[in-house]
Amino acid sequence: MNKIFRLVVLLAFPMTGCQENGEGTLSIEQVVVVESFLAPGQPPSIKLSSVIPFTTDTTTEIANAISAMEVSISVGDLNYNLVEMTDTPGTYEEPTKRLVIEEGETYQLQFTYFDHEVIGTTQVPSKPANFEISDTLIKLPRITEDSGPGGMPSMTEIELTWDNDESDYYLLTIHYMEEEYDTINTVFEIEDAAAAANFSSQPLQVNFYSIRSMQFSFFGRYQIVLSHINPEYARLFETLSQSSLEGLTEPESNVINGKGIFTSYNSDTLWIDVLEE
């Protein structure tokens, strides 16, 4: 009957706009972006900022820090209040240093923003187990104008392995530890040395990764960090549609009534030295 009624209504009154703005949808000013990556042994830090609205004017806007919030993190029955850092507005830390992040614990972030309870929950994953490297030292020839075609680096691969029976997410980041950049291939100029020196993987659900010797641009010591990450962290790396044809998308947030991420990870570290042959 309802349908027949609809049809009758349709015939009697040509359609009026039926597009209502759904209740409960937050306007852009009411949206808070949470950035927090908890790690065992590190003091928890929460960064709160606003979304930069897209307006017709072309001036670049900087996200505003969101200050003066009453932010708390609870674990079990304990509740810790965070305070805003005076030198970095919008960043909140636990002043008493009693809140220590521990593996396996579940932490909940909570605060109120524009009358909405913003909540984020995360459980700290386990530390990577049996993280091993095939070589802790490789030797590569320095490539100069005089090296000739024979001077190409060999295709040596550094194998990294760890346990991952549950197909959890892992992320590898490689940091160059030297202060001065000692270039392997001097033939080509490297524009952004920092970007070339440090690299990382996409989130991995496997238990191995190979670093090719060609991926190293500089001689020196590298830190290899394997982080056991949660799915919400992995989702930040998804390829997102940037076209209205496919439908614009944004990463699914694990923050209720907010954007961004409240997550945790657990890392293990190895080192490798890249030396001149």
Binding site: I28, V33, F37, K47, V51, I52, P53, V225, L236, E250
Partner: peptide
Amino acid sequence: LGGYQIELPDETVQEYIMV
């Protein structure tokens, strides 16, 4: 509607669109 950035623990910054 807008955009926001997230800084990852390795200090890289990712940019996102809020739809």
